[in-house]
Each structure stands twice: as structure tokens, then as C-alpha cells.
Design a protein around this nucleic acid. Structure first.
Lengths: 219, 219
DNA sequence: ATTACTAAAAGACGAGTAA
DNA sequence: TTTACTCGTCTTTTAGTAA
């Protein structure tokens, strides 16, 4: 939590985990009320300690935030959200249901993953994923999810096959417990999320392709 | 924004603008990874710079946050909220409509205040206030509103009469533009807010006493 | 323009300790 | 037990300046 004020200043300048911004140490210094030299040293240190990615040149420094920074900012956000709303923070994502190619079903039921769902998510999922194509304004949030702490299922390879990693968030979809999966090796773009749940969401919620759904992610 | 990490640590310990907590410099030091001495110095400084109220004794220090601190925390919260939700922050308050004693109408139309509404809120209000008794869980939020920057209408006295100050927040009630008023000299308790709007909200929204309404405050 | 080095000054730190 | 002072040390800062 040591660099919160500085990370916040970077957010103010438009820097994100998925957005690199060219800033000068002078303007950063002005924003933080420190000298250009201190701002320069600060960026060096933030990089060394893993909070930013950085590329300096004679015209300025290109900066983006790392997952470590996003994680700390989220921690701060959670405390503040609790303070200013009295509520636990949930990220809400909206999108439309679509039918995939059936690989979801295949992966969910692979023994390695199936054990992991039970162990790390605490439920045995219905064999299949609900594919959701996010509305454009939510893609930014999905990218944030990629960069904050989550329930991680590590990928691994043996001689026979290799398993990609999966990042999971517990949540709810129309009041039904579910988990949002960010699948490392997916052929879908950054606008797609996959959901698993103990029940068949398509049936339970009577969903057809194109139906709009709202997923609440608990962070 | 300099003491954000420290103010956040205080929030974590349960300190609020309306809640004094007894803490020891030792535990604060442990939380911030600094010595007891530095934590002590820090609290002195926070007090001197107007971020906390403080009362130290041989059993510890009673600490509460000032409006200045709440304002800075809110600034941080707004940036983070924008980052993590993509939305502007709004505080939502819920409560039930009730009928007052008619003083709302009297005050709203007093020439001094009427000029102020027009000047500072940008509309000419319907002559009357909508009184709302907040549900218990929202009283905390009302107290936060009291302690953050707002549109201020200063009170003043002359020989004839004295006018109390009013703190205003712009907002919406069921999609109708309105303003929430926190009236300095009110005989209502901290669970009551008063709303003014360019239209008669009771008529427009067909409200009866006891009806539940939701006010969105834009911060 | 920039970034970022060096050196000297300023400020922050914890140990010891009084109250 | 507390808080919070002094003091010596160490860290951080800025000004000057090189690249």
C-alpha cells in the first residue's frame, strides 16, 4: 500500500494495466508536488519493485501498470467501496449468450480440471460452459480481471497433453452461484467470458442465443 | 493525497468521520510497518495537518477522521470507482417519504435561499421539500455526506433574523433532477434528508407517506 | 526537449527513555 | 502499560548537470 498515492496519480494520467501512456517526469512531479528528479527516481523504483512497466526515451517515459499494482489498487478500492457504500464490491459484466463449439464441455469434464473445480470452487459443475460475448464497454473490465488476484488453476504439461491455466472468479448470474473463467489458451477474443455453475444455466434461466445476461463477480 | 495509505489503514481499523476508535501507536506501527515512534509522530502530523481528530492518553489514542480526510478519500474512491467499474460514482440512499410540518416550504421560498437555489443549483425549486426518513443502514452514508465537499450555502445572521447553512448535493430521484439538502439547523434527526426539485415530486411520482424512494446522489 | 546521475541538504527513522 | 521527546543515523530530496 506504500505507493497508493503515486499509482492513483498514474491512474489520473490515464495509465492502466492495458493502456500505456507517455508521461514526462516533469508533469508527474508537478502532479505529486515533487521535483522532476524525484519523479524520475520514483518511476525507476516502481519498475524495480514490479508496479509498472516502463520504457524511457528522450521524449518521455511510456508507463503501464502491472498486475501487482492493479491488485493493490483493488485492495484499496474494496476498503473505500465498503466505506462509501456499505456494500461489498462486485464487478458487474453484461453480455449476450452464444453457442460455442462444444470445447467447453470437453474441458470442464477433463479429470484434471474437474478435480480443480471441486477443490478450488467448491462445486461440481454442470458439464458445459455458458459462453458470453461481452458488450464493448465491459471489455475493459474483463482486462482488469485478467490483472488482479484470483483463484488460479495452474496449467501444466506432460508427455501426453498440456493443460492451459485458468483464472476463476466466484460470482452469481441471476442469483445462481457460478464461476467466471478466464481461460489462458482460448481461441475466443478478449470480449468472451465463460461461466460454469453447478446447474445447467441455459435450462435453469431459459437462455437462448442472443439473450442478455448480467454476471456479478465477487472480488 | 499524501497520506492515503495511512488514512486507509485507519479505515481498516474502523476509524470513520463519525466513529472514534481507540488505537495504540504500536498496532498502527505494526500495520504500516513502521516503529511505534514513527506511528506516534505520524498521528501528531495528521492532526496538525487537519486529517484526524485525536485525544491521546496513557491507554492509547482516540482517533476519528475529519472532513478533510473524508474528502481526500472520496477523491481517491472516485478515481478507483471509475477504473474498476467504468462508471461515475453515485451514492444511493433509500428511505420512506413522510410529511413534515410545512417549514420546508417556508424555508425554500425565503428570498435569500431562493436566490441561492437558482444560483448554486441551477433551478427554481417547487416550493416545498420532500422529506425522507432513511432506512437505518443508510444513516451511515448520510453522515459521510455531512463530511465531504458539497455545494455550500452559507448561513448568516442580521439583526432581523438568522439563516442556517445548507449543504447541497445534486442528484436524481427516479430519474428526475433534484437536490439533496442537509440543513444545518434542523429539528429532524440524522436519519432525515430533504429533497427539492424543479417539480412537485409528490405529484410527479405519485408519492404517499410511507412510500419507499431511492435517491441517487452525484458526487 | 527528455531521463537520470552526483552531491549536499533536508527530512524521516528507530533506539533509548521520560512522563 | 501508554505517548512522545531527543539524538544519532540513514534515507530521501532537490539543485546542478551530463547524456
Amino acid at each position: 500500500m506504500k505507493y497508493l498515492d503515486i499509482l492513483l496519480a498514474l491512474l489520473k494520467l490515464g495509465v492502466r494495466c492495458d493502456r500505456t501512456v507517455l508521461i514526462t517526469t516533469q508533469e508527474l512531479g508537478r502532479l505529486l508536488n515533487i521535483s522532476q528528479q524525484s519523479a524520475s527516481r520514483l518511476l525507476c523504483r516502481l519498475e524495480k519493485e514490479g508496479y509498472i512497466q516502463r520504457e524511457s526515451s528522450p521524449i518521455g517515459t511510456k508507463v503501464s501498470l502491472t498486475s501487482k499494482a492493479m491488485g493493490e489498487l483493488l485492495e484499496a478500492y474494496k476498503i473505500l467501496h465498503k466505506t462509501f457504500t456499505g456494500l461489498q464490491y462486485e464487478m458487474i459484466l453484461c453480455g449476450k449468450v452464444f453457442t460455442g463449439l462444444g470445447e467447453g464441455k470437453y474441458y470442464v469434464t477433463l479429470p484434471y480440471y474437474y478435480r480443480m473445480w471441486q477443490e478450488k470452487l467448491g462445486f461440481s459443475p454442470y458439464p458445459g460452459t455458458l459462453n458470453i460475448r461481452l458488450e464493448p464497454e465491459y471489455i475493459r473490465l474483463r482486462k482488469i480481471l485478467e490483472n488482479i488476484p484470483a483463484i488460479e488453476i495452474k496449467g501444466y504439461s506432460n508427455k501426453l497433453r498440456s493443460y492451459g491455466g485458468v483464472k476463476c472468479f466466484k460470482g452469481e448470474i441471476e442469483n445462481i452461484e457460478c464461476a467466471l473463467l478466464l481461460i489462458e489458451r482460448t481461441h475466443y477474443g478478449p470480449d468472451v467470458i465463460e461461466i460454469i455453475a453447478p446447474v445447467c444455466l441455459r435450462e435453469k434461466l431459459k437462455l437462448k442465443d442472443g439473450d442478455k445476461v448480467k454476471v456479478r463477480v465477487k472480488l
